[in-house]
């Protein structure tokens, strides 16, 4: 069980670094991104597989933790929180649910004359659509909560103590 969780975190960290690299983060942020992503994804995996929590709630818990982790790590490397937590959240973006929602819509409109199929694809559309929207919304909200709960600190993470360090 512990092994599975660690492997999950490890692969999530690789995914976060790779997908994050597309958006060109500063070099010093890569380690923080990997740590935040591993903690968040492993937490979501454990909650879903061992505690039976649904994907939307589990994503919220994971992103809430990622938010605080990125606040702490961001203050160490003088990076805004978003620079750490957006790449760290990328492996949890429900991409598969998102395009399955579009598929369900396509198939729904292709089977309009068959009431059984219509019902089936409508259900698929709602299940996938609600998971996709719910997870994306909860990921962003959870990670933004430190802004809302503790607003003074996150706004000044890139403020360096003295000029000599800024150069």
């Amino acid at each position: 069980m512990i092994g599975t969780i660690i492997v999950d975190g490890l692969f999530a960290a690789i995914a976060a670094i790779g997908f994050g690299a597309i958006s060109n983060p500063p070099r010093r942020a890569f380690l923080s991104i990997a740590i935040a992503a591993a903690i968040g994804h492993a937490l979501r995996f454990s909650l879903m597989h061992y505690a039976g929590v649904d994907i939307i709630t589990a994503s919220f818990c994971a992103s809430f933790v990622i938010g605080w982790v990125s606040l702490f790590l961001g203050s160490l490397i003088y990076c805004p929180m978003t620079v750490v937590y957006i790449p760290a959240l990328l492996p949890m973006i429900p991409g598969m649910y998102a395009y399955k929602t579009v598929f369900a819509l396509l198939l729904f409109s292709r089977n309009l004359s068959d009431p059984e199929m219509v019902q089936h694809y409508m259900q698929e559309f709602f299940v996938n659509g609600i998971v996709a929207c719910g997870v994306i919304f909860m990921l962003a909200v959870g990670a933004t909560l430190p802004f809302i709960l503790y607003p003074s600190k996150p706004y000044s993470l890139t403020r360096r103590p003295s000029e000599s360090k800024a150069d």
Binding site: N24, Y78, T158
Partner: peptide, 21 residues
């Protein structure tokens, strides 16, 4: 422009440096 977290953090830093110094 292409998305760049590097610009996000460095330009934020620049605004603080300008403000503080």
């Amino acid at each position: 422009y292409p998305i760049s977290f590097f610009l996000n953090s460095e330009l934020s830093s620049l605004s603080w440096a300008a403000y503080d110094n």
